[in-house]
Structure formats: structure tokens, C-alpha cells
Design a protein around this nucleic acid. Structure first.
Lengths: 362, 362
DNA sequence: TTGTATGCGTTATCAG
DNA sequence: CTGATAACGCATACAA
């Protein structure tokens, strides 16, 4: 079995110089005659350029790095899909590092990537305070970097994010339109920027509609994950409901909340409407399905990756890409009329809840 | 700003030949004196070898390919974590291709990876019949390849899988020990090998315990995903329960089933015990938590990747790695005593199910 | 133990 | 339009 053909093999066979072949391959000038000959020879030889050699010559690595808190976070999984797509199109490979397991050595590894230029660029997803060192190193080494949905505002780096403020307003408008007046807001981790911005938008929304904003209706989970939502629900549901609707800072929280609420026999949305943010796939299979203000997660991944390559190509100016979020009205939210409050809603019957069933089977 | 230092820079500065530096870097022979000098020089220069050049010299690409049906499959996400870990340790990058979106061009892209040797090796996860062309091409090109949990038996390729038969038996034993005698088995997609093997083991388990195996208790969903489980539950639960326990071919099915069952007011595990397979993380947060025979998913990813590198290093003989699955007893299954059948179990009370709560809060 | 020379497969420069 | 030839950065026989 012969070794793989190289550009030299092709050149010899065609009776031309390697440089000619190279030019032909890269779409530069070559006479029609040579072009035709090379085409057939390459085909019959089954020649394919060596990506490694080509990268060496170009002075690039053909590889980018992706850093994330946890590669198992459902939100990241969606974003990652977008990155994958873009990478596939650009014929670039990837190094992935999630900081959550064996976290001790992880940041050091990424620093190596950066300092040793093992990657052409870096995407940092949902970067937290703990990732600042990485970003600083990247900036210092002039390594093209873009952050996706960063959890703190950084002045010196590319950003792809969503309009969380507008999303908060969307949630408020939606619930007010449904007739709700007592609406609670449940924050996630205190530092989480998205949670803060969504609350900000929520307040703005209420203000514009001239609905009273009651700070006592703002609750706070310590973290932003599903379990935190469940934990919150357990204490929240101990006392009688003061709200007719609850906006939770993200879908994970909302899903965790709903699981417990359902078990406690709270009728959703009959007694309590629930709205989340993000648009996780789980929200479409939960019961009831979760109303949410969704982020275009895959698109965010694509945008981040696309932007990264622009920056790699020519040092592009700092820029923030802001994508819109959109309401996804589903079963966890419903109308509220003052009338219902006089005929107090019974606990949801155990079987045969028609509304719910219809929604589920839809 | 100077260009990055190369091995030549180091050599000049140290007054030695590049080959000496190279040897030092690769842990070959060098006098203590030179060693010390190089060490300090490299440190103060901040020199790091070019991975691209090194790869070119080695004739490798420093990159492997991973192909999967859907990169959003929760099971894959776990396996992928293991791959990520191993890759991190081996300083290798990755090309990922999930066949589910824009699937038209996808197989062609992977074929390019294979034919053009853009990757040093290939991992195909849960390979299906549609991936046969890829495997064939890989074998033909002598590209090191390992499949993880393949859905059909292929003679010519490395395999990392679990002992599904034993797992089926484990499930049977567990439920029989709990006192169950009417146990149903719910299969997934008809072609799914794991589903078949688990059923086989299940039957063996019953036989060894001299429990009657009733073919009428074997049901079949068309597919293997969560939605299929829900759909099955809707028809299954229309008629009165004939079983005291149900083994579903995987966790996705089981979770889908439980969602509907719970909504129908079926007491799990009071009226019906549920057991799944795989050990998805969702099973730990579902309500009740799902009893399952778990696969060491992350370990499978690690093993596959580790094995792949062995094959890359020296063409290792064909081998099948079989990992053990382990029972994870949780809240969805419970004991069944004949006595209960005479005092018919009431529907699970709506609030205050202590057993479940304890498990959840654990 | 160290230095010399060559190869890895491309691209780019610069004559022709 | 085409052909030598020098990078690209490193590894390794082979010779010293």
C-alpha cells in the first residue's frame, strides 16, 4: 500500500512544479490546460491536501477553544450545537474545557492553550468572575476572544448576549395582559447579570403599565439551577399564595419550582401562572409545558463562532452582538380574572384535568 | 512586539543546536549542564513548542472525530464529558458532527474527514444502520475507529459497550426480591440492540428465579425517547393495571412514562414500581427519583477515547470493552407484598407522601 | 553527549 | 502564466 499522495506526487505526475499545483488548489492563476490536467490527476490520485501542513504554512492552528462552566448545562448544550454547526462549515476543530469536574487543573490547561497559542481563538460561555484570569490572559496575548452571555460586564472583550431587559418587560406585559396584577419575581444567583437585567425589565414593564411594583414580591434563590428552584418552592409554598403569577429568572428555576408545586397540588396555571426565561427544550416536555421568554440559543452559538472568525481574520473592533428574545406562550400560564378570586379555585382535581391534558396532548 | 520564540531562538540563545533543544524537550539525552541552561532560557523566553509543526513532523493531526446521532441526547452529553476529559489529558482537539440537523450534508463531511485524514481517529457513538457507510469507509482507510454502544453488531470494529444482558437480569432480580411477580417489560425502538439485550437478560432473570415469563407483559414503544414513553403511558394506563412493576428499556422512556402516570394519579411506587436503564441525571431530579440500572456513561467515553489512542499508537487488535452496569435503587420502586392486594391500595394521597418526600429531599 | 542535514507538506516570494 | 526555492517549526537518522 502506497503512502498518501502529496502535492509533490501530483506535481510530478502532471509534469509541473508544486507551486503551480498549490496555486491551482487555492484558486489562483493557472492556464486552462494545466487546470484540466490537474483536476483529473488529483481525482484519480485521490489527493487531498494535508491540513496540518497547510496550517503550519498559514501560521494558524485550525482549532478554537471553548470554555464553559459545565458542558452538561442544558442551555450550553443548545449553544454548543450552534458552535458545532459553524465549526463544521469552517472546517475547524475544537478544544473543549468545562470547568466543573476536576476543576483544579482546568484553568491552568486553558491558560496553556492561550499562552502557547494552541488555539486560534477562544469562546467563553457564561463567563463568571472566576474566569476573569482567563479573559485577562487572552486579551494580553491578543488572542481573539468572544464571550457568550457573560455574567459580568467586561469592557475589553467581544460579547454575544440577549436583550434580557426587553425580555423581562415582555414577561411583565404578557402577564398583565392576561389580567394578572399580583406578580412575583424570583431571582437566581445574586451575581447573575441576566437575572438582574430581567428583573429590571420586569419592573420597567410594570411601570409602563402603571401596575404597582411591590418589592416584597421579589424573591431570591441563592443559585440559578433547577434544584434551587425546587428548594425555593418548598419554602415559598408553605404560606398561602400571595401572587397569581410568578416570573422566575430562568427556565431551570421554573422547572424545579413546577415539579414541587405540582406535587403540592398547586394548580398551574389555574392557581398560579409560571413564566421562565431561556427556552430550554425541557420546557417543551414538562407538565404543564413552560411558558418562557426564549433565547435563540443555537443562534447565539453560531453568532459567537462567526464573530470569532471575523476577529481572527482581521482584528475587528470590539463589538457587542445583542440578539432578541421571544415569548413562547405555553401551558404554564393562563388568564386571571378578578371573578375567580371570589369563587376560590379548588385544588386541582387529581384526575381528569382537561385543560392540562389538552395542552399536553397538543 | 517580537514574534513568538521558536526552537531556533532557544538554540541560538543557549549556544546549542536545535536538535539538542528538541531532544531536551522530548526527554531524550542531554547533559545536566545543557539541561539546566535550557530550562532557564526556555522559562525566561516563555517558549512553547508549536503544536502544528510538531504534528506535521509526527505525521499526525492531533485531532479526532466524534460522530453521534444527536449531540443533545442527554445520554451522549454524559459520554461526551468522558471524551472531553480524556482529550484534555492528551492534548488533542476534536471535530464533532451530530447527524440530526442539516443531516443531508453531514455524512459527506465526515467522509471527508476520513478520506482526507483530517483526523487521527474516529469515535462513533450509538452507531445505527445509517452510519454503516461511515464505518466501512473508516475501515477501508484503516482509520482507527471505536464505536460506543453500537445499535447493531459489527464484526470489524472496536466496541465499547455495557453488559445489557446482565443489567436486564439485575432489574428482574431486584423486583422479584421486592416481592413483585407481575412484571412488565417495555421495549424501545424495535431495532435497538440494547433494548433487546435488556429484555433477554430480564427473561433470564425471571427464569432463574422460576418466575413465569408472560409474553403478553412485553410491550413495545415504536421509539426509545421520552416522548415515546409518554405516548405509551397514555394508552397503557387506559386499562386497569395488570402489573405491579414495569421495567422500561431505558430512562428516557421511563421518565416519559412517569410524567404521564403521575398526572393520571398512579401511585409510584405504591401501585406500580418503575425501573429504567442508563442512569441519566434527570432520573435523580425526577419525582419520584427513578430507580435504574445505570451505565458508567462518563467512563464509557473515557474508555472509548483511551482505547482509540491505543489503537492509534500501535494498530491494536480488535477488541470489545464491556463495562458493568449497576443498580441504582431509588424512589420509583418499592416492595410489593401479597397482602396489599387484598386491601386494595388507595390512590396516592395528594399531599404528604412521606416516602417520596424523604427521597426527594435526600 | 552533541551537531549536521534532511524530511514533514504547504504556501509565498521572486525570477523567468 | 510557471518554476525554483525559501520559509513554516520541529523531529530524527547519522555522523562526530
Amino acid at each position: 500500500m502506497r503512502a498518501r499522495p502529496t502535492i509533490v506526487t501530483v506535481a510530478k505526475r502532471a509534469g509541473v512544479a508544486v507551486s503551480t499545483v498549490s496555486r491551482y488548489l487555492n484558486g489562483h492563476y493557472a492556464s486552462p490546460a494545466v487546470k484540466a490536467r490537474l483536476a483529473t490527476i488529483i481525482k484519480e490520485l485521490g489527493y487531498a491536501p494535508s491540513w496540518t501542513a497547510r496550517n503550519l504554512s498559514f501560521g494558524r492552528r485550525g482549532c478554537i477553544g471553548v470554555v464553559v462552566g459545565s458542558s452538561r448545562d442544558p442551555w450550553f448544550v443548545e449553544v454548543f450545537t450552534g458552535i458545532e454547526q459553524e465549526l463544521l462549515a469552517r472546517d475547524t476543530s475544537l478544544r473543549l474545557c468545562s470547568l466543573d469536574l476536576r476543576s483544579a487543573r482546568k484553568p491552568a490547561i486553558v491558560l496553556e492553550w492561550i499562552r502557547d497559542r494552541r488555539i486560534d481563538g477562544l469562546i467563553v460561555v457564561k463567563s463568571q468572575r472566576s474566569e476573569r484570569a482567563l479573559l485577562r490572559a487572552a486579551v494580553k496575548e491578543k488572542l481573539p476572544t468572544v464571550t457568550v452571555a457573560p455574567q459580568e460586564i467586561l469592557p475589553m472583550v467581544q460579547v454575544v448576549r440577549c436583550n434580557d431587559v426587553a425580555a423581562g418587560e415582555t414577561a411583565a406585559n404578557y402577564l398583565v395582559d392576561l389580567g394578572h396584577r399580583q406578580i412575583g419575581f424570583v431571582r437566581g444567583a445574586p451575581q447573575a447579570t441576566d437575572s438582574q437585567l430581567r428583573l429590571k425589565g420586569f419592573r420597567q414593564g410594570l411601570a409602563k403599565r402603571r401596575i404597582c411594583y411591590d418589592p416584597r414580591r421579589v424573591y431570591c434563590c441563592g443559585r440559578s439551577d433547577e434544584e434551587a428552584g425546587s428548594t425555593f418552592a418548598k419554602t415559598f409554598l408553605k404560606s398561602p399564595l400571595q401572587e397569581t403569577a410568578l416570573v422566575l429568572a430562568n427556565d431551570a428555576l421554573a422547572l424545579g419550582f413546577m415539579t414541587v408545586a405540582r406535587d403540592r397540588g398547586i394548580g398551574i396555571p389555574q392557581e398560579l401562572s409560571i413564566v421562565g426565561f431561556d427556552g430550554l427544550p425541557q420546557g417543551a416536555t414538562s407538565f404543564p409545558q413552560l411558558t418562557t421568554v426564549a433565547q435563540p440559543m443555537r443562534e447565539m452559538g453560531r453568532a459567537a463562532c462567526g464573530r470569532l472568525f471575523e476577529v481572527i481574520a482581521e482584528l475587528a473592533p470590539l463589538e457587542t452582538i445583542e440578539l432578541p428574545m421571544g415569548l413562547l406562550p405555553r401551558g404554564s400560564s393562563g388568564p386571571w380574572s378578578a371573578m375567580d378570586r371570589h369563587w376560590p379555585t379548588p385544588r386541582r382535581p387529581f384526575r381528569g384535568n382537561n385543560l392540562s391534558l389538552v395542552l399536553r396532548e397538543h
